[in-house]
Simulated assay, not measured.
Amino acid sequence: MNNNILITGAASGIGAATARLFHARGWQVGLLDINTEALADLATELGGCWYRQLDVTDIAEVKASLAEFCAKNDGQLQLLFNCAGILRFGYFEEIEHAEHVRIMQINVLGVCNMTHAAFPYLKAARTGQVINMGSASGLYGVPEMATYSASKFAIRGFTEALELEWARHGIKVADLMPPFVNTPMVSSQQHVPASLLRMGVNLQASEIADAVWRQVDSHAVHQPISLQFKLMYWAGQVSPAWLTRLSMRWLSRR
């Protein structure tokens, strides 16, 4: 079986950059996104690779898409990259409740849906792997992006638990934890949180795609990305909670 990867949120940003990288390195690539037009353009760019429109919150669509892609790959899935996600910067009380709900549905339930439905195909591959799109905001709650931060805490916990559970099946589970990345999801925001002003947007989508590639051969559960955040991450592992909180207060101060 050729190596294959199925990517949600593949139409732009990190998902598209990852698709281009893995396709260039000989992998069979499957593209999933709710944005059909951009998805079709990318599939054409990549030589007509398989793609389907998908709302990751619709479990029936999720199951059908996985079955169709994996049928083309001997019923196996080597790598699932859960990249689909949405973001809204702003003060919690000023964001409509429906937007908070949608963030949790896509960022958390969508990952759960994809991963659960992918299990038999990952197991059949014998060396199956799941990589979840986490975030630096999953390390400590970030003001002005509270619900997004909460969703990434959920992904961090989900990843840690499933990595232990699925070891018995030979399936690796990990997540990537970058700070702000220069993608349409970030650049389209109207509100700019203080933490972004202080940290800046110093990563490109292609750098996260490189991290996905490295993770294929890594046994790490969490992959913090960028020197800036790696220092924060490892300091947070050994520092008392109050010091991490103090650091976040400084980053979030206007």
Rank of each mutant, 00 (worst) to 15 (best):
N2M: 12
N2F: 02
N3A: 09
I5E: 06
L6G: 02
I7F: 03
I7E: 02
A10R: 01
G15A: 09
A17W: 01
A19R: 01
R20T: 13
R25L: 10
G26T: 05
G26I: 05
C49M: 03
W50I: 00
L54Q: 11
I59P: 01
I59M: 13
E61L: 11
K63H: 11
K63P: 00
A64D: 14
E68T: 11
F69Y: 15
F69I: 02
F69L: 04
F69Q: 03
Q76N: 08
A84W: 05
R88E: 14
F89S: 11
G90E: 07
F92T: 12
E93L: 06
E96A: 15
M104K: 00
L109S: 08
T115S: 15
P120G: 11
A125R: 10
A125L: 04
A125E: 04
R126M: 01
R126I: 00
V130F: 10
N132L: 07
G141D: 03
E144K: 06
E144P: 01
A146F: 03
T147C: 07
S149E: 08
S149H: 09
K152G: 09
F153R: 05
A154R: 11
I155H: 04
I155V: 15
F158G: 00
T159E: 10
A161P: 03
L164W: 07
A167L: 11
A167G: 00
I171G: 08
V173F: 11
M185T: 11
P193V: 07
L196S: 10
N202Y: 01
E207R: 07
A209T: 08
W213G: 04
D217F: 10
H219P: 00
V221N: 00
Q223S: 13
Q223E: 14
F229V: 06
K230N: 14
K230G: 04
L246V: 00
S247M: 13
S247D: 04
R249M: 12
S252V: 04
R253M: 07
